[in-house]
Design a protein around this nucleic acid. Structure first.
Lengths: 232, 232, 232, 232
DNA sequence: GATGAATGAGCCTTCATTCAT
DNA sequence: CATGAATGAAGGCTCATTCAT
């Protein structure tokens, strides 16, 4: 039965456990590997965790909590206008980069979680989380379609999948690099890539014009306003 | 003469083993689970495999071989013209659907292989294969960029990642469905999605015009020829 | 359940089994090794033997029977006289050589049987046999002591042990040689060795004299008769 | 602090293992038998030994080490005289009894080791040891022959075999007894037995005279000196 | 609290034995 | 009769968990 015990030890154990779980897989990870790497005794492990399984659950929960804290998908108020979207593009880009940074930092664990089936219990926690995020993104997609900003000839579920899948793979590519690549540049390219693929020609034309003319999105308000009205 | 080795047994064992490995992970999979599911004795397992590990290796190798056989990425001859590409769009779509079908059929195993690290040996086989495919796709991307068909403001490596990642996620979405979705439709939408994202405006305009006018791609030869000349 | 079956196969199996049992030990010997070496199928084994154990029993029994047939220790009629003994020395030597030849031929199996404890069942068969032989030899020793031919200051049991132990070790030495040594010579030396050790000085003196004078033992009848009378 | 490793446990395990190995043979011995007899858990076995095989190796090595420590065969300085030998006879007898005691104590294991081939690995360790001892004894035999103390009409190799074989069998006889026999008496008889068999008549005559006259060997110095000179 | 020696359930693998062909 | 594929009990070894110190 776990007792309060040394907080520092628990941190070390969690860090070590994550590494070992990722390297070996859940079943093949030995408690002794974990305690050895954490520099504590085998008994200490059971001061902090009920079992190996419990340790894994804590890791998953903690990770999802951190991830939740990092991810900020606002609930859109009312119907978004192209103007609003346009103003948010840079914000979103910044958020993308941030999320991407986080994703990268936790790539190994995330990969294991995304693998899903691999014998890991508590996968339902991940599924819950993913579904939650997926629903949010899909709701946004639907709204943007309704607003005439996203094209209406593509299934919102498919569209969400294509975009998030693309970002997912991008992350995997990134960590294969020996040196940390220019994340900001990659994120910007990806945003443009998906913008071209998803936006209606009209919305895209306006955005493009703004970008080309060097004006900040906010300065395009007039034009955007017009479009937004039509798409309402 | 004794009864000849039951060839069906090995097939059953491989099928069962794949399922168990996917469900439980390599280390947590019990040989007894496998033989039980295959409807043979525990000893029979060792008539066909040297060890549990060997069984896994055979599964991986067989899968990659089947996958290789299914995947046909031609080495482009010379610089492709938009005309050629345009004519191939439908072929590629058909191939996409086929590959997608395969991917779907083997989704569980593929997920495990892609997970990578999870303690599974022989991951290097998958890595080799993936890298090989990735290089081919990237070569195509580069060529299309050089031909003026793909935009030149996106890193070919990133572009490849975004597209294949999208398809990857799409597959995962598909298998979550309770009923088999309309794969052909989804593939068509995805092709258009990535076409919009990747093609230059000029190439896209020509393609779009052909599609809208209801003409078969081949009928657009004249226009395409003009574009191809410019982009050569 | 064993059926009559091919006699030739059984011979091959017994030969192979003996070799494998000796090489690997009873428990570590695999039926497949035996059948493989015999050039028959695994099933054939069970046409001739009830079990691996049964096979071992048959080998032991057959060997002991052959050994019994080879070993001829006469029941002495009445009290032996030195004359009789003297006449028999050459006969015994011939028999020693013969037995030694047999022992050598079957050295490997015999070694295993003598090892006793080594987990081999049916050891009681060997013990029975050895005890039987031992009793016979000891009875002879007692008789020779009573006849004044063997010294009376040595325990007959010990004397028997020292002599048969010596021959036992001699056999082991012999098979270590790369070339077959001169068994007859060794047997003669051993006989003389134990004769010196066991015979009373008086009996020895007479024997020695006979040997030195080049007379055949039989020619010494007179002298020996005298001695025998005294020792009666 | 945890309880320190139970040193008694390893001792118990070794003792139990030796018994089980001897009773069942190496392959048929079950680890569970060993731990059961030692009164510890199965897992405890693997705290002390790498494997069942490793346990056997440790037993063999430890035994040979103890045996080496017990066995003291001096390298003779110069050519031994009968006087020296005579003075040593009692010493040797004492050493014989001591070695015999040891041999008896470890009879079971020794029997298994001497069995050799029976599938037991590390037999080479025993062979090495036996050969080493054999060479020493043979060197002594050769020297005694050169000194005119041992007869020259017997092959030293054979002589060594006959003597050590005799002692070997004697040991086997001893442990068959239900009660511990009078080892000292048996050893004395055996020494006399082999002395009669090996010594030249002259050497034997001198020794015998000393023994019969009740004088201590040392008191025979004069006579022995004479003989030694002649045989030098 | 901390430690690591001890425990024993569980799993991979072997191989004697059976039996369909 | 002969064969060798199939069976499954048995046993070596691992490692999560406990607990005496």
């Amino acid at each position: 039965m776990p007792r309060p015990a040394d907080r520092r030890a628990k941190t070390e154990l969690l860090r070590a456990a994550e590494a070992v779980f990722v390297e070996r897989g859940l079943a093949a990870a030995k408690v002794e590997d974990i305690t050895g790497r954490a520099g504590v005794s085998k008994g200490a492990f059971y001061l902090h965790f009920e079992s190996k399984d419990d340790c894994w659950r804590q890791i998953v929960e903690a990770f999802l909590a951190r991830m939740s804290g990092c991810l900020r998908i606002p609930d859109p108020k009312g119907m978004p206008t192209l103007e609003v979207i346009c103003n948010q593009l840079d914000e979103w880009l910044a958020h993308d980069i941030e999320m991407f940074e986080f994703t990268w930092q936790n790539r190994a664990l995330l990969g294991m979680l995304l693998a899903g089936g691999g014998g890991a219990p508590y996968g339902y926690l991940v599924d819950q989380f993913a579904e939650q995020v997926g629903r949010k993104l899909q709701a946004w997609a639907q709204m943007l379609i309704d607003a005439g900003i996203y094209r209406d000839d593509v299934d919102p579920a498919l569209l969400t999948a294509l975009i998030s899948g693309g970002y997912d793979r991008m992350a995997r590519e990134v960590i294969k690099q020996s040196k940390r690549p220019d994340l900001a540049s990659w994120c910007r390219q990806a945003q443009q890539f998906f913008l071209r693929a998803s936006f209606t020609d009209e919305a895209r034309a306006i955005i493009d014009r703004g970008v080309r003319s060097g004006l900040s999105p906010r300065a395009e308000a007039a034009d955007l306003g017009q479009l937004a009205e039509r798409s309402g």
